[in-house]
Design a protein around this nucleic acid. Structure first.
Lengths: 140, 140
DNA sequence: ATTAAATCAATTGTACACAACTAATTCAAA
DNA sequence: TTTGAATTAGTTGTGTACAATTGATTTAAT
Protein backbone atom coordinates (compact mmCIF):
# COMPACT_ATOMS: atom_id res chain seq x y z
CA UNK A 1 0.00 0.00 0.00
CA UNK A 2 1.82 3.04 -1.31
CA UNK A 3 1.19 6.55 -0.11
CA UNK A 4 -2.02 7.70 -1.78
CA UNK A 5 -2.51 10.97 0.05
CA UNK A 6 -2.03 12.77 -3.26
CA UNK A 7 -5.42 11.38 -4.36
CA UNK A 8 -7.38 12.86 -1.47
CA UNK A 9 -10.13 15.21 -2.64
CA UNK A 10 -9.03 17.81 -0.11
CA UNK A 11 -5.57 18.00 -1.66
CA UNK A 12 -6.71 18.68 -5.19
CA UNK A 13 -6.53 22.15 -6.65
CA UNK A 14 -8.84 21.16 -9.50
CA UNK A 15 -11.82 20.44 -7.31
CA UNK A 16 -12.20 23.80 -5.51
CA UNK A 17 -11.69 25.43 -8.90
CA UNK A 18 -14.44 23.35 -10.47
CA UNK A 19 -16.76 23.74 -7.50
CA UNK A 20 -16.17 27.49 -7.12
CA UNK A 21 -16.80 28.09 -10.79
CA UNK A 22 -20.18 26.37 -10.53
CA UNK A 23 -20.91 28.19 -7.27
CA UNK A 24 -20.30 31.59 -8.87
CA UNK A 25 -22.52 30.66 -11.81
CA UNK A 26 -25.23 29.73 -9.31
CA UNK A 27 -24.84 33.12 -7.62
CA UNK A 28 -25.41 34.81 -10.97
CA UNK A 29 -28.55 32.85 -11.74
CA UNK A 30 -31.12 34.92 -9.78
CA UNK A 31 -29.81 38.13 -11.34
CA UNK A 32 -29.57 36.69 -14.84
CA UNK A 33 -33.05 35.19 -14.55
CA UNK A 34 -34.37 38.75 -14.28
CA UNK A 35 -32.99 39.62 -17.69
CA UNK A 36 -33.71 36.20 -19.19
CA UNK A 37 -30.13 35.10 -19.84
CA UNK A 38 -28.12 32.03 -18.87
CA UNK A 39 -24.57 32.53 -17.67
CA UNK A 40 -23.00 31.56 -20.99
CA UNK A 41 -25.42 33.78 -22.88
CA UNK A 42 -24.42 36.58 -20.49
CA UNK A 43 -20.70 36.36 -21.26
CA UNK A 44 -21.50 36.31 -24.98
CA UNK A 45 -23.49 39.51 -24.47
CA UNK A 46 -20.60 41.03 -22.50
CA UNK A 47 -18.43 40.63 -25.58
CA UNK A 48 -21.11 42.02 -27.89
CA UNK A 49 -21.73 45.01 -25.64
CA UNK A 50 -18.05 45.81 -26.09
CA UNK A 51 -17.65 44.96 -29.76
CA UNK A 52 -21.09 45.39 -31.33
CA UNK A 53 -19.96 43.13 -34.16
CA UNK A 54 -17.65 40.11 -34.12
CA UNK A 55 -17.07 36.94 -36.10
CA UNK A 56 -18.06 33.66 -34.53
CA UNK A 57 -14.47 32.57 -34.84
CA UNK A 58 -13.11 35.47 -32.83
CA UNK A 59 -15.94 35.19 -30.31
CA UNK A 60 -14.94 31.59 -29.77
CA UNK A 61 -11.34 32.61 -29.17
CA UNK A 62 -12.34 35.25 -26.66
CA UNK A 63 -14.52 32.85 -24.67
CA UNK A 64 -12.61 29.60 -25.35
CA UNK A 65 -15.79 28.09 -26.80
CA UNK A 66 -16.22 26.23 -30.08
CA UNK A 67 -18.96 26.22 -32.69
CA UNK A 68 -20.62 23.21 -31.08
CA UNK A 69 -21.41 25.38 -28.08
CA UNK A 70 -21.78 28.75 -29.78
CA UNK A 71 -23.99 27.92 -32.74
CA UNK A 72 -27.05 26.75 -30.77
CA UNK A 73 -26.48 29.46 -28.15
CA UNK A 74 -26.35 32.26 -30.72
CA UNK A 75 -29.45 30.89 -32.42
CA UNK A 76 -31.23 31.20 -29.08
CA UNK A 77 -30.01 34.78 -28.62
CA UNK A 78 -31.15 35.51 -32.16
CA UNK A 79 -34.58 34.07 -31.43
CA UNK A 80 -34.81 36.35 -28.39
CA UNK A 81 -34.03 39.25 -30.74
CA UNK A 82 -30.85 40.23 -28.92
CA UNK A 83 -28.36 39.48 -31.69
CA UNK A 84 -28.29 39.20 -35.46
CA UNK A 85 -26.33 36.62 -37.43
CA UNK A 86 -25.31 37.13 -40.99
CA UNK A 87 -22.60 35.83 -43.28
CA UNK A 88 -19.70 38.01 -44.35
CA UNK A 89 -20.39 38.63 -48.03
CA UNK A 90 -16.66 38.82 -48.78
CA UNK A 91 -16.20 35.38 -47.26
CA UNK A 92 -19.39 33.47 -46.61
CA UNK A 93 -17.60 30.95 -44.43
CA UNK A 94 -17.50 33.63 -41.77
CA UNK A 95 -20.55 34.24 -39.60
CA UNK A 96 -20.80 37.77 -38.24
CA UNK A 97 -22.68 38.27 -35.00
CA UNK A 98 -23.89 41.73 -34.07
CA UNK A 99 -25.96 43.11 -31.23
CA UNK A 100 -29.43 44.48 -31.99
CA UNK A 101 -31.00 47.58 -30.44
CA UNK A 102 -32.92 45.29 -28.12
CA UNK A 103 -29.64 43.62 -27.16
CA UNK A 104 -28.04 46.98 -26.45
CA UNK A 105 -31.07 47.91 -24.38
CA UNK A 106 -30.47 44.93 -22.14
CA UNK A 107 -27.10 46.39 -21.18
CA UNK A 108 -28.82 49.01 -19.04
CA UNK A 109 -30.51 46.31 -16.98
CA UNK A 110 -27.27 44.33 -16.67
CA UNK A 111 -25.27 47.24 -15.33
CA UNK A 112 -26.01 46.49 -11.69
CA UNK A 113 -25.11 42.80 -11.87
CA UNK A 114 -21.30 42.92 -11.42
CA UNK A 115 -21.69 45.07 -8.31
CA UNK A 116 -24.33 42.76 -6.83
CA UNK A 117 -22.19 39.70 -7.45
CA UNK A 118 -19.13 41.44 -6.02
CA UNK A 119 -21.12 42.20 -2.91
CA UNK A 120 -22.28 38.65 -2.33
CA UNK A 121 -18.94 37.02 -3.21
CA UNK A 122 -17.43 39.22 -0.52
CA UNK A 123 -13.79 38.88 -1.58
CA UNK A 124 -11.32 41.54 -0.47
CA UNK A 125 -9.88 43.64 -3.26
CA UNK A 126 -6.52 42.03 -2.53
CA UNK A 127 -7.92 38.51 -2.89
CA UNK A 128 -9.78 39.40 -6.07
CA UNK A 129 -6.58 40.74 -7.63
CA UNK A 130 -4.59 37.68 -6.53
CA UNK A 131 -7.26 35.30 -7.80
CA UNK A 132 -7.36 36.93 -11.20
CA UNK A 133 -3.59 36.91 -11.46
CA UNK A 134 -3.31 33.21 -10.62
CA UNK A 135 -6.17 32.20 -12.91
CA UNK A 136 -4.44 34.22 -15.63
CA UNK A 137 -1.38 32.00 -15.20
CA UNK A 138 -3.50 28.89 -15.67
CA UNK A 139 -5.06 30.35 -18.80
CA UNK A 140 -1.55 30.99 -20.13
CA UNK B 1 -24.49 56.81 -21.85
CA UNK B 2 -23.49 55.85 -18.33
CA UNK B 3 -20.17 54.33 -17.42
CA UNK B 4 -20.34 50.68 -18.40
CA UNK B 5 -16.73 49.69 -17.79
CA UNK B 6 -17.95 47.35 -15.09
CA UNK B 7 -19.46 45.16 -17.83
CA UNK B 8 -16.20 44.63 -19.71
CA UNK B 9 -15.25 40.97 -19.99
CA UNK B 10 -11.71 41.76 -18.87
CA UNK B 11 -12.97 43.17 -15.58
CA UNK B 12 -15.00 40.15 -14.55
CA UNK B 13 -13.70 37.75 -11.97
CA UNK B 14 -16.30 35.14 -12.96
CA UNK B 15 -14.96 34.67 -16.47
CA UNK B 16 -11.35 33.67 -15.72
CA UNK B 17 -12.74 31.38 -13.04
CA UNK B 18 -15.12 29.73 -15.48
CA UNK B 19 -12.51 29.56 -18.24
CA UNK B 20 -9.74 28.25 -15.98
CA UNK B 21 -11.98 25.55 -14.57
CA UNK B 22 -12.71 24.27 -18.07
CA UNK B 23 -9.05 24.59 -19.00
CA UNK B 24 -7.97 22.44 -16.06
CA UNK B 25 -10.60 19.83 -16.93
CA UNK B 26 -9.20 19.78 -20.48
CA UNK B 27 -5.71 19.23 -19.10
CA UNK B 28 -6.98 16.21 -17.16
CA UNK B 29 -8.61 14.65 -20.19
CA UNK B 30 -5.60 12.91 -21.77
CA UNK B 31 -4.66 11.34 -18.43
CA UNK B 32 -8.22 10.37 -17.55
CA UNK B 33 -8.78 8.90 -21.01
CA UNK B 34 -6.07 6.36 -20.18
CA UNK B 35 -8.08 5.05 -17.24
CA UNK B 36 -11.44 5.47 -18.97
CA UNK B 37 -12.92 8.11 -16.68
CA UNK B 38 -14.42 11.51 -17.28
CA UNK B 39 -13.47 14.33 -14.94
CA UNK B 40 -16.69 14.12 -12.93
CA UNK B 41 -16.38 10.36 -12.68
CA UNK B 42 -12.82 10.89 -11.46
CA UNK B 43 -13.80 13.15 -8.55
CA UNK B 44 -16.49 10.65 -7.56
CA UNK B 45 -13.81 7.95 -7.50
CA UNK B 46 -11.54 10.22 -5.42
CA UNK B 47 -14.23 10.25 -2.74
CA UNK B 48 -14.80 6.51 -2.95
CA UNK B 49 -11.08 5.76 -2.74
CA UNK B 50 -11.13 7.66 0.56
CA UNK B 51 -14.42 6.42 1.95
CA UNK B 52 -15.04 3.01 0.37
CA UNK B 53 -18.73 3.42 1.20
CA UNK B 54 -20.91 6.53 1.23
CA UNK B 55 -24.56 7.47 0.78
CA UNK B 56 -25.54 9.27 -2.38
CA UNK B 57 -26.77 12.11 -0.25
CA UNK B 58 -23.41 12.65 1.45
CA UNK B 59 -21.56 12.18 -1.84
CA UNK B 60 -23.69 14.95 -3.28
CA UNK B 61 -22.81 17.22 -0.36
CA UNK B 62 -19.11 16.53 -0.74
CA UNK B 63 -19.11 17.32 -4.46
CA UNK B 64 -21.96 19.88 -4.52
CA UNK B 65 -23.81 17.71 -7.04
CA UNK B 66 -27.45 16.63 -6.98
CA UNK B 67 -29.17 13.37 -7.88
CA UNK B 68 -29.89 14.60 -11.39
CA UNK B 69 -26.17 14.54 -12.05
CA UNK B 70 -25.12 11.70 -9.77
CA UNK B 71 -27.71 9.04 -10.53
CA UNK B 72 -26.83 8.56 -14.23
CA UNK B 73 -23.12 9.00 -13.50
CA UNK B 74 -23.12 6.32 -10.79
CA UNK B 75 -25.06 3.98 -13.06
CA UNK B 76 -22.28 4.38 -15.62
CA UNK B 77 -19.60 3.66 -13.00
CA UNK B 78 -21.62 0.64 -11.90
CA UNK B 79 -21.82 -0.60 -15.49
CA UNK B 80 -18.04 -0.28 -15.72
CA UNK B 81 -17.85 -2.45 -12.59
CA UNK B 82 -16.08 0.23 -10.55
CA UNK B 83 -18.79 0.82 -7.94
CA UNK B 84 -21.73 -1.00 -6.42
CA UNK B 85 -25.08 0.60 -5.53
CA UNK B 86 -27.41 -0.84 -2.97
CA UNK B 87 -30.17 0.45 -0.72
CA UNK B 88 -29.68 0.82 3.02
CA UNK B 89 -31.92 -1.90 4.48
CA UNK B 90 -32.62 0.19 7.58
CA UNK B 91 -33.87 3.02 5.36
CA UNK B 92 -34.45 2.09 1.76
CA UNK B 93 -34.66 5.74 0.72
CA UNK B 94 -30.92 5.86 1.13
CA UNK B 95 -28.68 4.60 -1.69
CA UNK B 96 -25.28 3.36 -0.56
CA UNK B 97 -22.44 3.56 -3.04
CA UNK B 98 -19.33 1.47 -2.47
CA UNK B 99 -16.16 0.89 -4.44
CA UNK B 100 -15.54 -2.59 -5.91
CA UNK B 101 -12.20 -4.38 -6.04
CA UNK B 102 -11.91 -3.33 -9.66
CA UNK B 103 -12.58 0.25 -8.60
CA UNK B 104 -9.89 0.05 -5.93
CA UNK B 105 -7.53 -1.39 -8.52
CA UNK B 106 -7.94 1.71 -10.64
CA UNK B 107 -6.50 3.78 -7.83
CA UNK B 108 -3.03 2.44 -8.58
CA UNK B 109 -3.23 3.73 -12.13
CA UNK B 110 -4.57 7.09 -10.98
CA UNK B 111 -1.76 7.70 -8.53
CA UNK B 112 0.44 9.52 -11.03
CA UNK B 113 -2.24 11.89 -12.28
CA UNK B 114 -2.10 14.65 -9.64
CA UNK B 115 1.66 14.97 -10.08
CA UNK B 116 1.39 15.12 -13.87
CA UNK B 117 -1.30 17.80 -13.70
CA UNK B 118 0.71 19.76 -11.15
CA UNK B 119 3.65 19.67 -13.51
CA UNK B 120 1.74 20.99 -16.52
CA UNK B 121 -0.23 23.62 -14.58
CA UNK B 122 3.12 24.96 -13.43
CA UNK B 123 1.86 27.04 -10.52
CA UNK B 124 4.30 27.98 -7.76
CA UNK B 125 3.57 26.40 -4.39
CA UNK B 126 2.79 29.87 -3.11
CA UNK B 127 0.24 30.52 -5.86
CA UNK B 128 -1.36 27.11 -5.39
CA UNK B 129 -1.81 27.77 -1.68
CA UNK B 130 -3.22 31.25 -2.32
CA UNK B 131 -5.57 29.97 -5.00
CA UNK B 132 -6.94 27.26 -2.76
CA UNK B 133 -7.41 29.69 0.10
CA UNK B 134 -9.34 32.21 -2.03
CA UNK B 135 -11.49 29.55 -3.70
CA UNK B 136 -12.24 28.25 -0.21
CA UNK B 137 -13.64 31.67 0.68
CA UNK B 138 -15.96 31.56 -2.33
CA UNK B 139 -17.15 28.10 -1.37
CA UNK B 140 -17.90 29.43 2.11
C1' DA C 1 -6.73 27.96 -64.19
C1' DT C 2 -6.58 23.63 -61.40
C1' DT C 3 -6.44 21.46 -57.47
C1' DA C 4 -4.78 20.42 -52.88
C1' DA C 5 -4.72 22.36 -48.32
C1' DA C 6 -6.71 25.31 -45.07
C1' DT C 7 -10.56 27.66 -42.93
C1' DC C 8 -14.94 28.09 -40.97
C1' DA C 9 -19.63 27.06 -39.21
C1' DA C 10 -22.82 23.54 -38.60
C1' DT C 11 -24.03 18.91 -37.11
C1' DT C 12 -23.83 14.73 -34.35
C1' DG C 13 -23.14 12.22 -30.26
C1' DT C 14 -21.75 11.86 -25.39
C1' DA C 15 -21.62 13.65 -20.78
C1' DC C 16 -22.53 16.64 -17.53
C1' DA C 17 -25.27 20.45 -14.44
C1' DC C 18 -29.28 21.77 -12.51
C1' DA C 19 -34.19 23.10 -11.85
C1' DA C 20 -38.54 21.12 -11.23
C1' DC C 21 -41.18 17.35 -10.34
C1' DT C 22 -42.47 12.53 -8.79
C1' DA C 23 -42.80 8.65 -5.84
C1' DA C 24 -41.56 5.92 -2.08
C1' DT C 25 -40.49 5.88 2.59
C1' DT C 26 -39.64 7.62 7.19
C1' DC C 27 -40.45 10.75 10.89
C1' DA C 28 -43.09 13.29 14.14
C1' DA C 29 -46.94 15.75 16.01
C1' DA C 30 -51.57 15.49 17.50
C1' DT D 1 -51.97 5.52 15.64
C1' DT D 2 -53.08 8.35 11.92
C1' DT D 3 -51.68 11.69 8.99
C1' DG D 4 -49.06 15.52 7.37
C1' DA D 5 -44.29 17.07 6.78
C1' DA D 6 -39.75 15.89 5.63
C1' DT D 7 -36.28 13.11 3.39
C1' DT D 8 -34.26 10.70 -0.37
C1' DA D 9 -33.32 9.09 -5.06
C1' DG D 10 -34.99 8.98 -9.55
C1' DT D 11 -36.94 11.26 -13.81
C1' DT D 12 -37.62 14.82 -17.19
C1' DG D 13 -36.40 18.76 -19.75
C1' DT D 14 -33.25 22.55 -20.93
C1' DG D 15 -28.75 24.28 -21.74
C1' DT D 16 -24.23 23.93 -22.11
C1' DA D 17 -19.20 21.73 -23.25
C1' DC D 18 -16.54 19.46 -26.37
C1' DA D 19 -14.69 15.89 -29.61
C1' DA D 20 -15.26 14.41 -34.13
C1' DT D 21 -17.06 14.81 -38.55
C1' DT D 22 -19.11 17.16 -42.55
C1' DG D 23 -19.61 20.34 -46.21
C1' DA D 24 -19.06 24.68 -48.26
C1' DT D 25 -15.79 28.05 -49.44
C1' DT D 26 -11.40 30.30 -49.87
C1' DT D 27 -6.48 30.35 -50.35
C1' DA D 28 -2.26 29.04 -52.24
C1' DA D 29 0.86 26.34 -54.82
C1' DT D 30 1.66 24.59 -59.23
Amino acid sequence: MKDDKCLELGRQICFPLYAASREVTRRYKPFLDEIGLTYTQYIVMLVLWEEEKISMHELGERLYLDSGTLTPLLVKLENKGLVERKRNEKDVREMIVSVTDKGTGLKVQAREIPGQIGKCLNLSLKDAVQLKRILGKILG
